[in-house]
């Protein structure tokens, strides 16, 4: 994998790549295990479907920021390709501005959404946070449908659920991915904005991604032939 590089950025790369591979691997194994449970043992892992869906959400939302870093997001670059460098840079700046706006708005939204489940106050204000809404009702009692509570998270009961026991995993856990992923997305867009400003990058979308992958595939084929 490309994460073989050294230094802190290499380590971060390798963490991100392992998380992506690991989440997908786990989803596959859980679903497969459930089929085996039903076919071979006439049983069912009742929480398998829900847990797989949560892992799926984590995979895509966390992966979105990695895709920004590797310029993998799908987009239209037909017009960009027709433009000379100067206007192309203007358009790249405009589009990274849109991306920053999106991630800032969604970061507020994601925190607000998650906060009530964490017994924390959401922010007030429609577009921008203007303070904390201390009157918002806590929803820390709210559990998921099927995934059981795990012993390692019992400390949450005292921390946010006023000592009441959870039977199922509280929703604060799966939803945690929302604020985390939106924060990571914001950071990656800030980096991209800096690169565009310095002229190191001229677009936000994948243009040569397919070619790159083919390049990698050809390299692999050549290795096999060698």
């Amino acid at each position: 994998m490309s994460g073989a590089g050294s230094g802190p950025s290499g380590i971060i790369n390798s963490i991100e790549e392992n998380v992506i591979a690991g989440l997908l691997g786990l989803m596959t194994l859980i679903t497969f295990a459930n089929v085996i449970a039903r076919f071979a043992f006439n049983s069912n892992i009742l929480w398998a479907l829900e847990l797989t869906v949560f892992l799926f959400a984590w995979l895509v939302l966390l992966g979105a920021s990695y895709a920004v870093k590797t310029h993998a997001h799908l987009g239209v670059d037909a017009i960009l390709n027709m433009l000379p460098p100067a206007p192309r840079r203007m358009m790249a700046l405009a589009s990274v501005g849109c991306c920053l706006a999106f991630s800032l708005l969604l970061l507020k939204g994601a925190y607000d959404y998650w906060a009530v489940f964490a017994d924390l106050p959401p922010t007030s204000g429609r577009w921008f946070p203007t303070g904390f809404d201390l009157k918002a009702r806590s929803q820390s009692f709210y559990e998921v449908q099927d995934v059981p509570m795990v012993a390692g998270l019992r400390w949450l009961e005292g921390l946010i659920n006023y000592g009441d026991a959870y039977e199922k995993l509280p929703k604060v856990v799966p939803y945690l991915v929302l604020p985390i992923s939106m924060l990571l997305l914001l950071l990656r867009f800030v980096q991209a904005a800096r690169q565009i400003w310095r002229g190191e990058l001229d677009r936000m979308v994948a243009s040569h991604e397919v070619e790159d992958e083919l390049e990698a595939m050809r390299a692999q084929h050549n290795e096999e032939r060698d």
């Binding site: 006439n42 069912n44 009742l46 398998a48 479907l49 829900e50 449908q145 099927d146 039977e167």
Partner: peptide, 18 residues
């Protein structure tokens, strides 16, 4: 998704499926 309904199906020897 309901613990009661799962228990009910298990009581009659069925295998509850989600």
């Amino acid at each position: 998704s309901s613990d009661v309904l799962v228990a009910q199906m298990e009581a009659i020897g069925g295998s509850p499926q989600k």
